[in-house]
């Protein structure tokens, strides 16, 4: 006899998997933020040295499919004899992917700060670190927050691809549950809805912050 699944069974299991989506997103976002910040600081500190490295890095991750990056991280680590859990493969690929996008977003924000601000800082005998910390970063951060929050939505959606390398997050759970229940329409509609519930509030927040920032600048 075929087991019967109520909608509640489906929803409960999907929400459970959704927690993994949230966790993976946070890992990628925080990890990507740290790596992205290092990249950005190197680039701003010594543009002649790190400028082209930065550009190539960004081009590489923005110009190739995230799915390929996940495959390369998954099979690459194994090829070099590093047996790791799918958490590491997925976390690594998503972190690098996120870092490239965040670094590029933040670079634009720093570049939008007039050069005079740097020079004023330098004329007060502030070191590079002090200029960045006390003069440029506070101004750049204000413009950087809305697009950064907006990019979190891209990260959450990006984690769905980790399902392909076997990470049992929301999309993967949807696949498995659809196969067991024979209700793919209901299951994938619910999966989509759960992603929407995660992402839409963040999108709205980003839009609200953007309006607020623009209002301040005008």
């Amino acid at each position: 006899m075929m087991p019967q699944f109520s909608y509640w069974d489906i929803l409960r299991n999907l929400i459970y998997a959704g927690e993994l989506t949230v966790m993976l997103s946070l890992i990628a976002f925080i990890g990507g933020g740290i790596v992205g910040m290092v990249l950005l600081l190197a680039r701003v500190w010594r543009p002649q040295v790190f400028g082209s490295v930065f550009n190539i890095y960004v081009q590489l991750f923005q110009g190739t499919p995230l799915l390929m990056q996940l495959f390369l991280s998954y099979f690459g680590l194994r090829l070099f004899g590093i047996e790791v859990s799918v958490w590491v493969s997925a976390g690594l690929a998503l972190t690098l992917y996120t870092s490239a996008f965040l670094a590029e977003i933040w670079r634009g924000c720093v570049a939008s700060i007039p050069k005079g601000q740097w020079e004023a800082g330098a004329s007060l005998a502030l070191s590079f670190g002090e200029q960045m910390r006390y003069v440029v970063a506070p101004q750049a951060m204000r413009i950087a927050i809305p697009p950064t929050v907006g990019f979190l939505v891209q990260v959450i959606k990006g984690t769905a691809l980790a399902s392909v390398i076997g990470f049992a997050e929301l999309t993967r759970a949807g696949n498995m549950i659809a196969n067991v229940t024979y209700q793919p329409f209901t299951v994938f509609a619910t999966v989509g809805l759960l992603y929407f519930c995660l992402c839409y509030p963040i999108s709205l927040t980003a839009r609200y912050l953007e309006r607020k920032t623009n209002a301040v600048r005008r």
């Binding site: 990006g158 769905a160 691809l161 949807g174 659809a178």
Partner: peptide, 23 residues
């Protein structure tokens, strides 16, 4: 626009390919 922009492409694809046959 909001629905498509706030869900992953892979889920949209699965919904169309695996979900619609149920209908």
């Amino acid at each position: 626009v909001e629905l498509l922009r706030n869900t992953p492409f892979i889920v949209q694809l699965y919904f169309i390919f695996f979900g619609l046959p149920e209908l």
